[in-house]
């Protein structure tokens, strides 16, 4: 599967140059090119990509400001004509930093870093995120963003603070796939992120104002899991 990417670059020539390299290497697909960060941000609110080729200095919102506003963390290759941003690049933990114009060889090195990082992340996938298929696309949800998962028959609903995602799956199936260090089943219809529990009253727990029942069979498990002082 190709690396799904977007280019955020106000210089058309630089974007054309990069697109050609992406085509040439055969492993990177450029889904969109945005001439400014605002349009890219708008797109990234509803769409998940693996990689962003990101210019730093653009009119309006800068590349770093875009990274500040992202709700998830795809891999990022900064493309800039200045070397002064290297320290910031390090701070933002970007995958690589390409000084424009860059050679095909240098581009390939950056893509290799992306693949390597991606392999490492997939190896740790159980630990910090999962992918769900919703609205015809694969969406990466970080464990920390998921409040709880609710059964809806043959479907489940992933509840995050900002959005609800419905996907074709069952609680029973998910129970074995989510990270047990973060999630636990508390009822036949609910899996919760127990780091998000606000309070527990009798056989009900509360997460962000949502009331979730705890079944008798799972009550002792819940009580063992939470840290009672």
């Amino acid at each position: 599967m190709k690396i799904q990417s977007i280019i955020v670059e106000d210089l058309q020539v630089a974007a054309d140059f990069l697109k050609r390299f992406c085509e040439k290497c055969g492993v990177v697909e450029v889904i969109h090119h945005f001439l400014n960060a605002e349009d890219a941000l708008h797109y990234l609110k509803d769409n998940v990509v693996d990689l962003i080729f990101l210019d730093v200095e653009m009119p309006g919102v800068s590349g770093f400001e875009l990274l500040d506003q992202l709700v998830y963390t795809p891999q990022v290759i900064l493309t800039t004509s200045k070397t002064e941003y290297a320290y910031n690049a390090f701070q933002y933990n970007v995958t690589d930093y390409l000084k424009k114009p860059f050679t095909y060889q240098r581009f390939l090195e950056a893509i290799q870093k992306v693949s390597k990082k991606s392999e490492q992340e997939n190896g740790n996938a159980e630990q910090d995120h999962l992918f769900i298929k919703s609205d015809g696309k694969l969406i990466r949800l970080h464990n920390d963003d998921i409040l709880f998962i609710e059964s809806m028959g043959d479907y489940v609903k992933f509840i995050t603070p900002s959005k609800k995602y419905i996907t074709h799956n069952t609680i029973k199936n998910l129970e074995t796939k989510v990270n047990p260090q973060v999630f636990m089943k508390v009822h036949r219809s609910y899996i919760v992120n127990f780091t998000k529990i606000n309070d527990i009253q009798e056989n009900v727990l509360f997460i962000n104002g949502n009331m979730i029942p705890i079944s008798k069979t799972h009550k002792s498990g819940v009580m063992q899991k939470i840290n009672i002082i």
Binding site: Q12, V13, D16, F17, R20, K24, T103, Y104, Q105
Partner: peptide, 21 residues
């Protein structure tokens, strides 16, 4: 040479758009 290798079609395209821009 390092930038374009033997991809002179790309070189032509980029030279043209660079001049225009």
């Amino acid at each position: 040479q390092e930038l374009y290798g033997d991809d002179f079609q790309q070189a032509e395209m980029i030279f043209e758009s660079s001049a225009q821009q």
